[in-house]
Design a protein around this nucleic acid. Structure first.
Lengths: 129, 129
DNA sequence: ACGCATCTTATGCGCTCGCATATAATCGGA
DNA sequence: TCCGATTATATGCGAGCGCATAAGATGCGT
């Protein structure tokens, strides 16, 4: 089947794009800012609004990450003082997470590298829905 | 910048496609065939021609996998009898890898699931170079 | 022939991940 | 009010990954 071959080629192409871009992002963020891509993305979610705190559950929703992995990512960020956990008084099962000032600073810096890598390595025709 | 937003959206879109498809592939292959996506892809490389043996280095080349990860993937496949390592006589640093008959059988079965998942979950407009 | 740089694969190590489960809080029905 | 089902987060555990390095083989210059 020609369609099968084409299907596989599209998948391989998607894989190649993903690996190239995520690899470059990971390396750049790690080398220049000591941040994992996952850590950066988490920080990114916490600085969209201004200092908006969000619940873990809420965060996990739009990140491609398991609940446990997110919990540990927040652990790591918290240990380095980039993020702060706070009780959620309305529902004491929940936990709020917010970026600290240092966290916001680090995010702003890292975002420059992030955008630079995307500009350089994200193929212009990558319209994948 | 509008272009920055568009850039990030394309990246997010690529990420979403990758995660959806690779997740579905992984689950299907694992549940129905007890194979990791990486293991399937390795097996796939070894059954393109007919029973063609290939060198580790050669394999690593077109897979998005570190040399050590490939070595261990071959370990796992070999332990289950799906793959066989053989000395490379011409250059005794090298190692040949070839799929066994059982490996070929398992690959043929798994490939059906693989194609089914791609057909169902790979977005038709995913032309990522 | 010898020694040293190079090349190929294997292995030690630490990291992040997901799954399963534990812990804690909430909610709803009897 | 009390108890079981449900929800939110944390944690034990094992798996796969990449980096650095070890171990083995080659090959070139002298």
């Amino acid at each position: 089947m020609t369609s099968e071959v084409a299907l596989i080629e599209r998948w391989r192409s998607l894989l190649a794009s993903y690996n190239r871009v995520s690899g470059q992002l990971d390396r750049a963020l790690q080398d220049r800012h000591a941040l994992t891509l996952t850590e950066f993305e988490t920080l990114d979610r916490l600085t969209i609004g201004d200092g908006e705190k969000r619940r873990m559950q809420d965060l996990a929703g739009d990140m491609h990450l398991s609940q446990s992995a997110l919990s540990r990512t927040v652990d790591r960020l918290e240990k380095r003082g980039l993020v702060r956990r706070a009780m959620c008084e309305a529902d004491r099962r929940g936990v709020f997470v917010a970026a600290t000032e240092e966290g916001v600073r680090r995010h702003v810096e890292a975002r420059r590298s992030y955008l630079a890598v995307l500009t350089e390595h994200l193929p212009p025709n990558a319209t994948c829905g």
